[in-house]
Computed example of a mutant assay.
Amino acid sequence: MGKSIASRFENVDLVRSELRAVIINDDELTLEMDFCLEEAHPDYEAPGVGEDCCFHPGLLKFAGISKLSLERAEHSPEAVRRYAIQSFHIEGSKFDMACDWGTIHLQARSIRVLTE
């Protein structure tokens, strides 16, 4: 049996993690993430020069979306590569996140966490 959603975030600091991209296809939503790993995480490595966190790329994939609300924040014209997260919550089939990109609220049949 696979790991639960909550167990996949063990030793991951979600609020210090960052959103890289939002991709929408039909009834699917993919969030490209840089997860901030804590020292106890098996993939943890010392942070790179100029970084205060061990960032590890990954994806949050939502399929079978029955409710979706995206509210994009206004940004200056400069290209932003990472968006800071203020709040992050997954409970059952519901997901809510507020970040510099904007806010995301959804309900989906399937929520998968993938790391590279």
Rank of each mutant, 00 (worst) to 15 (best):
M1N: 02
M1R: 03
G2K: 03
G2Q: 04
K3P: 01
I5P: 01
A6S: 13
S7D: 14
R8N: 14
R8T: 14
F9K: 02
F9P: 03
F9Q: 04
N11C: 11
N11P: 00
L14K: 07
L14M: 13
V15C: 07
R16I: 09
R16F: 11
R16K: 15
L19E: 03
R20K: 12
R20V: 14
A21W: 00
A21P: 00
V22A: 01
N25L: 09
D27G: 09
D27K: 13
E28I: 10
T30I: 11
T30N: 01
L31T: 09
L31V: 08
E32K: 11
E32W: 04
E32H: 09
M33Y: 08
M33I: 13
D34W: 08
F35A: 07
F35W: 10
C36N: 01
L37C: 02
E38F: 02
E38Q: 12
A40L: 06
A40N: 10
H41M: 07
P42L: 10
P42N: 07
D43F: 12
Y44L: 02
Y44D: 01
Y44F: 13
Y44R: 03
E45P: 00
E45I: 10
E45Q: 11
A46W: 05
P47C: 01
P47H: 02
G48R: 05
V49P: 01
G50Q: 06
E51S: 11
C53Q: 07
C53Y: 06
H56N: 08
H56Y: 15
H56Q: 05
G58H: 01
G58F: 03
L60H: 05
K61N: 11
A63S: 13
I65H: 12
I65S: 08
S66N: 14
K67A: 15
K67T: 15
L68A: 08
S69N: 09
R72C: 04
A73F: 02
A73K: 02
E74T: 11
H75S: 06
H75N: 04
H75C: 01
S76L: 09
P77G: 07
E78Q: 04
A79E: 05
A79I: 08
R81I: 12
R81Y: 07
R82E: 04
S87V: 09
F88Y: 14
I90D: 06
I90F: 07
K94P: 05
F95V: 05
F95I: 07
D96R: 12
D96W: 03
A98P: 00
A98L: 12
A98K: 07
C99A: 14
W101Q: 00
W101M: 03
W101V: 04
G102Q: 02
T103I: 06
T103D: 06
T103E: 08
T103Y: 03
I104N: 00
I104S: 00
H105R: 13
H105Q: 12
Q107W: 06
Q107R: 14
Q107E: 14
A108C: 02
R109I: 15
R109K: 15
S110M: 14
R112W: 09
V113L: 13
V113W: 05
V113R: 07
T115R: 13
T115D: 09
T115G: 08
